[in-house]
Design a protein around this nucleic acid. Sequence first.
DNA 1: TCTCAATGGAACACGCATGTCCCACTTTGG
DNA 2: CCAAAGTGGGACATGCGTGTTCCATTGAGA
Lengths: 182, 182
Amino acid sequence: MPSAATTRTRQAVVEAAVACWSTDPSASLGEVAARAGVGRSTLNRHFSGRAELVAAVDQLCRERFRAAAAGARPEEGTGLEALQRLALALLELRDLLGLVFGDDAPIDPDSWEDDEHAELEQVLRRGYADGSLAGDLPPEWLATVLWTTLFGAWLLLREGRFSSHEVGTLMIRTLARGVGSA
Amino acid sequence: MPSAATTRTRQAVVEAAVACWSTDPSASLGEVAARAGVGRSTLNRHFSGRAELVAAVDQLCRERFRAAAAGARPEEGTGLEALQRLALALLELRDLLGLVFGDDAPIDPDSWEDDEHAELEQVLRRGYADGSLAGDLPPEWLATVLWTTLFGAWLLLREGRFSSHEVGTLMIRTLARGVGSA
DNA sequence: TCTCAATGGAACACGCATGTCCCACTTTGG
DNA sequence: CCAAAGTGGGACATGCGTGTTCCATTGAGA
């Protein structure tokens, strides 16, 4: 049972790591500690090394992604509509997307496979069944297109020349045309 | 005027860098030198540092990309057809794509902007004019979708569960639906 | 008020990639 | 054949991120 101070410090460090690494994944532990307002030795007291801190950030990402996916009501409407809601919900996690899409990203969703991937498969299956998704495109490709389109939207959003709403509109429009039934 | 030996060694080192970094961009200069069959000191004799070698690889990429783009006959047929040929031509540059799309990639096409980008803009402009590309999608988004779709195709190709031809078909199909006129 | 967990800062050692220098050997060209 | 260019390998120093240890200080709970 960790004390209150311990829990608070750990949380501050993890949040600082997200803030730092979402823009520069190569940021040193010293920078993370500074951003968290703690000493480097304190950071190493809570996380034995960089790998352990990355693991903590990874777990936080899983939770946030899971919550966002659940909030997109994946069981509602057609499979394509659910896919579009899912994409929009993920796009709102800008900082977290930086950890996944940024150069030499520390977080790799492919290593999850268990929870999130299963839910996406469910949505795709429903899309095939109700005819809202193109039946001639294999599920691996649909999943890839979802992620890469989300990646593209995140890129444009990061550029700053388009608003979040504009990018979201472009994304779901291209998604509907690209993988929806003709 | 560099001697024959100098040119040969430089070329071997650059090719070794491509071979190494396309699968592991963090490979040390020692590994690159070993792969090239030369000593580490020899590598440093031709390239003052890692940055200079990266620049040489970058330039080689430009040339290969430029050649591939030219070979796709960007002036022929509709804008969409040219875009599809361009995507297929780029997909064939597997090793080079690894340098661009891989984690912590050493090569960034966004830093080119001058030659390649202009040609792509030309294709898009023609696509808007002849009605083959969706007019309600801004060129920045079309360019992004092209690259991210190519990225997705490269990902699936790297997985190894699909043939080069299958992935190419999926890519141009999704591209036509996603950014083509409805 | 006292005690103990928690902290911050400094110092140190370690590993790794890198850059440089040097010297003996091999190859190329005049 | 001989000089010059090129090469390989080793030795060395450097910078950076990292992990560890030690100690004085702070703050919250008993």
